[in-house]
């Protein structure tokens, strides 16, 4: 049991022990490269599984079968889609701003790699154990707006540009409640370190202490990754596909990978901060972690295929006049709660 729980730590220790000095620069560098490869594999695997799962969930919500042709119950459909995508021609529009057009998908894809690197996947299993973990996560994910804007501008297409502008308006608005909803947890734990935040939840997960913050985080998180009902950025009926309109082949695939990678990252942060991360009885920590992430991802898919898209002005109204005051109220209540707790406990 304990062995299974620490499986990856034991493997890491074994790889380190192959070096003459297990703590030397080269050992560290090797471990960093391995961690990097693991994070990339997580994103690619997550995208492969989630795309199929999304279509299955879509089928389930609208009472259809979903993909069912290729492989057992259609489970190989995504592999075929990915292979098709790789074979497609890479088209750059003649009027495009070529460098910006080509860099944008790379930035989108690199951001989940940077954010997923600080998530603790198990006890002592964060690829990079950063003291400012949660703050770093938010700072890096803020850059994705810039990438959407670059894609929208670079394509030199009015629909792309409109999509890019919408991305900016939406993401800037929803970043603030997202940030504020996490402040309550930081106030309780007195730490930005995600490992410490998970350890602080060994008696009770923060979803019980911070239910309001969790709801705000999930809503703002769905808006942050541009999924329905907040998918105004790529609303097909209005702006074709927003910033992705002109992209083809693997560049478009990178956007897709980045999108599902971001979704995994947002869910992983929710599982870490509110659901107790890798903590749980009986099963190994990393199994618990991925189960919790899976539940949140399923919930996000369920929401996507249940609610219709909301209008731009309603979107802004929700962010600035509902979520923002509620998140500030949550901070205030948390402060009051901590004060009363200290008064009662005499700490």
């Amino acid at each position: 049991m304990q062995t299974l729980n620490n499986l990856f730590l034991i493997i890491a220790h074994f790889i380190r022990s192959l070096f003459a000095d297990p703590q030397s620069v080269w050992a560290n560098l090797t471990m960093d490269v391995i961690n990097f490869i693991i994070v990339v594999v997580i994103i690619v695997l997550a995208a492969l599984i989630l795309i199929l799962l999304e279509r299955k969930v879509a089928g389930w919500t609208s009472m259809r079968t979903g993909p069912n042709r290729l492989g057992p119950r259609g489970w190989f459909q995504t592999i075929a889609d990915a292979l098709k995508l790789m074979g497609k021609e890479d088209v750059t529009p003649a009027g495009a701003d070529k460098i910006i057009f080509k860099i944008a998908p790379m930035i989108i894809f690199s951001l989940p790699m940077m954010t997923l690197a600080v998530i603790p996947y198990g006890n002592h299993m964060a690829p990079i154990d950063l003291d400012l973990g949660i703050f770093y996560f938010l700072a890096v994910s803020a850059i994705s707006t810039l990438a959407f804007l670059m894609a929208g501008w670079g394509s030199n297409n009015k629909y792309s540009l409109l999509g890019g502008m919408r991305a900016v308006a939406q993401m800037i608005s929803y970043e603030i409640p997202l940030l504020f909803s996490l402040l309550g947890v930081i106030m309780i734990t007195q730490s930005f370190n995600l490992g410490d935040i998970v350890k602080a939840q060994h008696t009770i997960p923060f979803i019980v202490l911070q239910p309001l913050a969790f709801v705000i985080y999930i809503i703002a998180g769905i808006a942050e990754v541009n999924r329905a009902p907040f998918d105004l950025v790529e609303a097909d009926q209005e702006v074709v596909a927003g910033p992705f309109t002109e992209y083809t082949g693997l560049r478009w695939g990178l956007f897709f990978l980045g999108e599902y990678g971001n979704m995994t990252a947002v869910s992983a942060l929710a599982a870490t901060v509110f659901l107790g991360g890798w903590q749980g009885p009986f099963l190994p920590g990393w199994v618990w972690f991925w189960m919790k992430v899976g539940v949140i991802i399923f919930f996000m898919m369920w929401v996507r295929w249940t609610f219709p898209r909301i209008r731009v002005d309603h979107l802004m109204h929700l962010a600035w006049k509902v979520l923002l005051p509620l998140s500030i109220l949550n901070i205030f209540l948390t402060g009051l709660g901590i004060f009363i707790y200290r008064l009662v406990m005499g700490g």
């Binding site: 703050f135 700072a139 890096v140 803020a142 804007l149």
Partner: peptide, 18 residues
Amino acid sequence: ADFLAAVQLLVYTGAVSI
């Protein structure tokens, strides 16, 4: 100055430049 670096990314790269 890790904190300052994160603030730089969040405020300057993520908001001001946008």
